[in-house]
Amino acid sequence: MTPPNAVPVTPAVAGLPDLLLSMADDEFVIGFSDSEWTGIAPLLEEDVAMSSLAQDELGHAAALYDLLAELTGGDRDVLAYDREPPAYRHARLLDHARGDWAMAIARRYLYETSDAVRLEALAGGSWAALADLVGKIQREERYHGLHVAAWLDRLAHVGGEPRERLIAALTALGPDAGTVFAPIPDEPGLVESGILAARMTELEARWRAAIEPTLERLELPQPPPVRDPHEGRTKHGEAFDWLHGEFTAVRRSDPGALW
């Protein structure tokens, strides 16, 4: 598809490419991870749901890569597929191996709640091309939030093994949960230019305050602080090397082919 033509003013804000890359990589990696559940989810409806969620997230990633390509050149496929693992800037929250269904729900819950706070801080921002896209993304994400909240409740309430698995998943992901808010290079410029409503540390505080009552009500563990926030989007590890091998396999099989 032809990229959106609505990129009227290209703001010369140093942190903007890094912001777009971090968001696009987040959506791309969670979208691809969701698609891994197609065919093996615990219910037929969840096969459909995860496939549909994946399609939404990959669509968001494509639109964000398009915006980035408008700023810096290149194209969405090159951005998505032609980098080596260390060059990706998604949050480390998304670097854990697929795991079980509780892990998929815990990952989606922590990511979707974080993403919602980030989107809120970008909606109505000063760069129309991004603010408009964010407005549209928010309408789709509402369904994602409802879906994952219902599953979190279900696994937490049912007790026994599902609850134990959910707690294990939240405990494993916890130390990386806040990495969606890892600092972005030149972040102050993004705030001063009105593209982003507040610094990432402030957004992280908003996110923790937003999820605390839910986790408390369900008697689930609150995520601890991130150990090394400055490496939250750069140190990816083996699970991502594997995922990267998967999502670049087709592209590498016939470089330059049009699908």
């Binding site: 598809m1 032809t2 990229p3 959106p4 033509n5 609505a6 639109a63 129309a128 408009d132 896209l133 407005g135 549209k136 309408r139």
Partner: peptide, 11 residues
């Protein structure tokens, strides 16, 4: 030429 836009969100 056909382009897409999010200027007005489709609802």
């Amino acid at each position: 030429t056909v382009t897409t836009s999010f200027e007005t969100p489709w609802t």
